[in-house]
Amino acid sequence: MSKLDVNDHLVVVGNFGVYQWLVLILNGMLACLFGMQMFVTVFTHATPDFRCIQESVVSNSSVQYDNQCTLNSSTAEVTIDCERFEYDTSIFTATLATEFDAVCGAAQYVTMVNVAWMISEGVGSILGSYICDR
Protein backbone atom coordinates (compact mmCIF):
# COMPACT_ATOMS: atom_id res chain seq x y z
CA MET A 1 0.00 0.00 0.00
CA SER A 2 1.45 3.35 -1.03
CA LYS A 3 1.53 6.45 1.07
CA LEU A 4 -1.14 9.09 0.38
CA ASP A 5 0.47 12.06 -1.30
CA VAL A 6 -1.78 15.07 -1.75
CA ASN A 7 0.27 16.49 -4.62
CA ASP A 8 -0.27 13.31 -6.65
CA HIS A 9 -4.02 13.64 -6.22
CA LEU A 10 -4.01 17.34 -7.10
CA VAL A 11 -2.48 16.47 -10.45
CA VAL A 12 -5.41 14.15 -11.12
CA VAL A 13 -8.22 16.48 -9.99
CA GLY A 14 -6.59 19.71 -11.07
CA ASN A 15 -4.88 22.58 -9.32
CA PHE A 16 -6.33 25.65 -7.62
CA GLY A 17 -7.82 27.30 -10.68
CA VAL A 18 -10.01 30.26 -11.55
CA TYR A 19 -13.19 28.59 -10.32
CA GLN A 20 -11.68 27.82 -6.93
CA TRP A 21 -10.46 31.41 -6.59
CA LEU A 22 -13.92 32.70 -7.51
CA VAL A 23 -15.58 30.45 -4.92
CA LEU A 24 -13.04 31.48 -2.28
CA ILE A 25 -13.49 35.22 -2.91
CA LEU A 26 -17.30 35.07 -3.02
CA ASN A 27 -17.48 33.00 0.17
CA GLY A 28 -15.07 35.38 1.88
CA MET A 29 -17.19 38.38 0.92
CA LEU A 30 -20.32 36.60 2.10
CA ALA A 31 -18.69 35.73 5.42
CA CYS A 32 -17.75 39.39 5.90
CA LEU A 33 -21.34 40.46 5.32
CA PHE A 34 -22.67 37.96 7.83
CA GLY A 35 -20.06 39.03 10.34
CA MET A 36 -21.17 42.65 10.08
CA GLN A 37 -24.50 41.82 11.72
CA MET A 38 -22.60 41.09 14.91
CA PHE A 39 -21.31 44.68 14.93
CA VAL A 40 -24.81 46.16 14.75
CA THR A 41 -25.14 45.79 18.52
CA VAL A 42 -22.28 48.23 19.03
CA PHE A 43 -24.37 50.95 17.42
CA THR A 44 -27.93 50.00 18.38
CA HIS A 45 -27.34 48.94 21.99
CA ALA A 46 -25.04 51.77 23.06
CA THR A 47 -26.06 54.08 25.88
CA PRO A 48 -24.89 57.62 25.17
CA ASP A 49 -24.27 60.21 27.85
CA PHE A 50 -27.51 61.59 29.21
CA ARG A 51 -28.72 64.50 31.27
CA CYS A 52 -31.61 64.54 33.65
CA ILE A 53 -34.16 67.22 32.90
CA GLN A 54 -36.54 68.12 35.70
CA GLU A 55 -38.55 71.24 35.04
CA SER A 56 -40.30 71.16 38.41
CA VAL A 57 -37.05 71.76 40.31
CA VAL A 58 -36.38 75.20 38.81
CA SER A 59 -39.35 76.94 37.26
CA ASN A 60 -37.53 79.10 34.69
CA SER A 61 -34.94 76.68 33.38
CA SER A 62 -34.21 72.99 33.47
CA VAL A 63 -31.39 71.66 35.64
CA GLN A 64 -29.09 69.23 33.87
CA TYR A 65 -26.56 66.77 35.30
CA ASP A 66 -24.44 64.31 33.33
CA ASN A 67 -25.32 60.60 33.71
CA GLN A 68 -27.29 61.00 36.92
CA CYS A 69 -30.68 59.42 37.49
CA THR A 70 -31.78 61.70 40.31
CA LEU A 71 -31.69 65.39 41.10
CA ASN A 72 -31.06 67.03 44.43
CA SER A 73 -33.54 69.80 44.98
CA SER A 74 -31.95 73.14 45.83
CA THR A 75 -34.91 74.26 47.93
CA ALA A 76 -35.28 71.11 50.05
CA GLU A 77 -33.09 68.20 51.09
CA VAL A 78 -34.98 65.85 48.78
CA THR A 79 -33.75 63.63 45.98
CA ILE A 80 -36.08 63.65 42.99
CA ASP A 81 -36.20 60.93 40.30
CA CYS A 82 -35.87 62.16 36.76
CA GLU A 83 -38.97 62.60 34.64
CA ARG A 84 -37.19 63.14 31.32
CA PHE A 85 -33.76 62.56 29.86
CA GLU A 86 -31.83 64.42 27.23
CA TYR A 87 -29.20 62.41 25.35
CA ASP A 88 -25.91 63.38 23.79
CA THR A 89 -26.42 62.88 20.05
CA SER A 90 -22.91 63.79 18.95
CA ILE A 91 -21.96 60.12 18.42
CA PHE A 92 -25.24 58.21 18.11
CA THR A 93 -28.44 59.87 16.98
CA ALA A 94 -30.76 57.03 18.03
CA THR A 95 -30.18 53.83 20.00
CA LEU A 96 -32.38 51.50 22.03
CA ALA A 97 -31.54 53.47 25.15
CA THR A 98 -32.54 56.81 23.61
CA GLU A 99 -35.70 55.56 21.93
CA PHE A 100 -37.10 53.80 25.01
CA ASP A 101 -35.40 55.82 27.79
CA ALA A 102 -33.60 52.65 28.86
CA VAL A 103 -31.26 54.28 31.36
CA CYS A 104 -31.01 54.12 35.13
CA GLY A 105 -33.62 51.61 36.35
CA ALA A 106 -34.45 50.40 32.85
CA ALA A 107 -30.85 49.88 31.70
CA GLN A 108 -31.12 46.12 32.11
CA TYR A 109 -33.60 45.98 29.22
CA VAL A 110 -30.84 46.83 26.74
CA THR A 111 -28.82 43.91 28.13
CA MET A 112 -31.85 41.62 27.85
CA VAL A 113 -32.28 42.62 24.20
CA ASN A 114 -28.61 41.84 23.60
CA VAL A 115 -28.97 38.42 25.25
CA ALA A 116 -32.07 37.67 23.16
CA TRP A 117 -30.15 38.71 20.04
CA MET A 118 -27.27 36.35 20.82
CA ILE A 119 -29.59 33.45 21.67
CA SER A 120 -31.43 33.94 18.37
CA GLU A 121 -28.09 34.01 16.54
CA GLY A 122 -27.12 30.68 18.11
CA VAL A 123 -30.47 28.98 17.54
CA GLY A 124 -30.66 30.37 14.02
CA SER A 125 -27.23 29.06 13.11
CA ILE A 126 -28.03 25.59 14.42
CA LEU A 127 -31.45 25.43 12.74
CA GLY A 128 -30.11 27.01 9.56
CA SER A 129 -27.30 24.49 9.24
CA TYR A 130 -29.74 21.64 9.90
CA ILE A 131 -32.16 22.91 7.25
CA CYS A 132 -29.36 23.45 4.71
CA ASP A 133 -28.17 19.87 5.17
CA ARG A 134 -31.58 18.47 4.21
Rank of each mutant, 00 (worst) to 15 (best):
I25F: 12
I25P: 00
L26I: 06
L26Y: 03
L26R: 01
L26S: 12
L26D: 00
N27M: 14
N27W: 07
G28A: 09
G28S: 09
G28Y: 07
G28D: 04
G28T: 14
M29E: 04
M29W: 08
M29G: 11
M29F: 14
L30F: 15
L30S: 12
L30M: 14
L30H: 14
A31M: 12
A31F: 12
C32R: 06
C32Y: 12
C32G: 03
L33Q: 05
L33M: 09
F34E: 03
F34S: 03
F34L: 14
G35W: 08
G35N: 11
G35V: 05
G35H: 05
M36W: 05
M36V: 01
Q37L: 07
M38G: 07
V40E: 09
T41K: 04
T41S: 13
T41M: 14
T41L: 14
V42I: 10
V42S: 03
V42H: 10
V42D: 12
F43Q: 06
T44C: 03
T44V: 11
T44K: 07
H45K: 02
H45N: 13
H45V: 02
H45I: 01
T47H: 07
T47V: 15
T47W: 02
T47R: 08
T47S: 13
P48E: 09
P48D: 08
P48Q: 06
P48W: 07
D49E: 14
D49C: 02
D49P: 01
D49T: 13
F50L: 02
F50Q: 02
F50C: 04
R51P: 00
R51I: 03
C52H: 10
C52A: 05
C52M: 09
C52V: 05
C52T: 08
I53P: 00
I53K: 10
I53E: 13
I53V: 15
Q54G: 00
Q54V: 10
Q54H: 06
E55Y: 06
E55F: 03
E55N: 13
E55I: 01
S56T: 11
S56D: 13
V57Y: 05
V58C: 05
V58T: 12
S59L: 07
S59Q: 12
S59R: 11
S59E: 11
S59I: 07
N60Y: 05
N60C: 08
N60F: 09
N60R: 09
S61Y: 11
S61E: 10
S62L: 00
S62C: 02
S62W: 01
S62Q: 01
V63I: 15
V63K: 14
Q64V: 14
Q64N: 02
D66A: 07
D66W: 00
D66Q: 08
D66R: 10
N67I: 03
N67L: 05
N67V: 04
N67H: 00
Q68G: 02
Q68R: 08
T70H: 13
T70M: 11
T70V: 15
